[in-house]
Design a protein around this nucleic acid. Structure first.
Lengths: 235, 235
DNA sequence: TTGAACACTGAGCAATGATCAGTTATGGGT
DNA sequence: ACCCATAACTGATCATTGCTCAGTGTTCAA
């Protein structure tokens, strides 16, 4: 009868029983599942550790048995989101052999995943943080960041190869890679940040963004077979 | 960044004397100037109202004589940022007669102002709210937003004109305008959000982004006289 | 000189993320 | 059947945050 507080026993989503001896990792999963739902629904800042703990069925301090900080819970979720993107990239590499088409498909799937999981995208790519590029100090830090590095490097390598094979014009590869990140990121970020703005059709914007990049990068003589033109309609 | 508590009054930047009767507006200016410096140096969240007040030479509560909230201090700074951008646009329109070159210069100055005022840019363009397009409720809100609408419409009109005059290829103007917003926004947002990422040279990124857009939009036969090529160097 | 409007302060509130000394339950070893 | 080390967890409490409010001093027109 210690903890039972009948008055305030609200919506404990999962088993709130004390975990058996070796099953602490289940708590980790529960915390992550509920944290993800709450972060997506309310945003990271709006979720307090007290409310999160309450929904998990723990005291607030109990969270700190499994995570060093609130931020670390977010980090764990980011790790998994990287996996989603990476596996989509890998599938494209298997399914498509033409590098230029891979470039298109890779950008497109990146945008689509971002728009389909806006809150996760915000968490990973729109928060000011230095998570991606392997400058971490902590021990676990490095492994976690390398996932993010892979996502960036994937597109990087693709662009490099397209330049080297002469499909894209000769240009500074690092600059080109980063430019090829900006436009998709801008598209996702804008659509997420201003969802009520009178945007054009989502697919038209994605197509146009990608084709604009391709047109800007393509070597003078080179014309892609599967080139989709920018929409020609007026207004 | 820990507070190294000085024994007494540390670094009061401006006159900390009590203002005479009608001179409260001077305090407003002082608060804004110091707040701007601190926001840029440390970031909005890292600046506490107590430290801000201390530097201004006021008690923390004294800030609330002039501003309803910490957020409102930032809002006031944002208002001025709109003005900065708009007047830069106007000067370009005066100084440059070629529309394509206006397009380049307009995008460039937008990016430069964004990167030079990251805190304001984040608040204005990266927040998940509808600040820009006139859906505000509050009284002063409307006037503030209309400034933002002007900034967006300026680029919009420019792109429309370039399509109409045949410099840009025939395409859906709305889509093109929005694509022309995404890439610069992506550039600014990425550089702000991940300041420590190993980005290429800032100017190279701006040039490449703009030239990529131009190349993507330019009508097939049209070659601009002042066309800067993408950098040709390797690595 | 007066008194109302103004400029400003000190104390304090509720909420936050984090810490820590303790408490309870578990289960392998005996 | 009973240890008892320890994993799992709690209650109390911390410092810090943005913000409020009752009140104190100051200024200046009348």
């Amino acid at each position: 009868m210690k903890r039972t507080r009948m008055a305030a026993a609200p919506a404990r989503i999962s088993g709130n029983a004390r975990k058996p001896r070796g099953q602490g990792h289940e708590r980790v999963e529960e915390i992550l599942a509920i944290a993800k739902a709450m972060f997506l629904a309310e945003g990271f800042d709006a979720v307090t550790t007290r409310r999160l703990a309450e929904r998990v069925g723990l005291s607030q301090a109990g969270l700190y048995v499994y995570f060093k900080s609130k931020e670390e819970i977010l980090d764990a979720l980011c790790q998994r989101a990287y996996e989603t993107t990476l596996s989509a990239f890998r599938r494209i590499e298997e399914e498509v052999s033409d590098d230029l088409e891979r470039f298109r498909r890779t950008l497109r799937v990146f945008v689509e995943i971002g728009l389909d999981h806006p809150e996760e995208y915000q968490i990973i790519y729109m928060r000011p943080r230095a998570l991606l590029y392997g400058l971490g100090e902590g021990p676990g830090r490095g492994a976690r960041e390398s996932r993010g590095v892979q996502v960036v490097r994937w597109q990087h390598d693709l662009v490099r190869r397209l330049i080297r094979t002469g499909v894209f014009r000769t240009m500074n590869a690092k600059v080109a890679c980063q430019v090829a990140l900006f436009a998709p990121h801008g598209l996702i970020a804008k659509l997420i940040a201003w969802p009520d703005f009178p945007w054009a059709q989502r697919d038209a914007l994605i197509d146009a963004t990608i084709e604009c990049l391709v047109a800007g990068f393509l070597a003078p003589g080179c014309v892609s077979s599967s080139r989709k033109p920018l929409k020609d309609g007026h207004e």
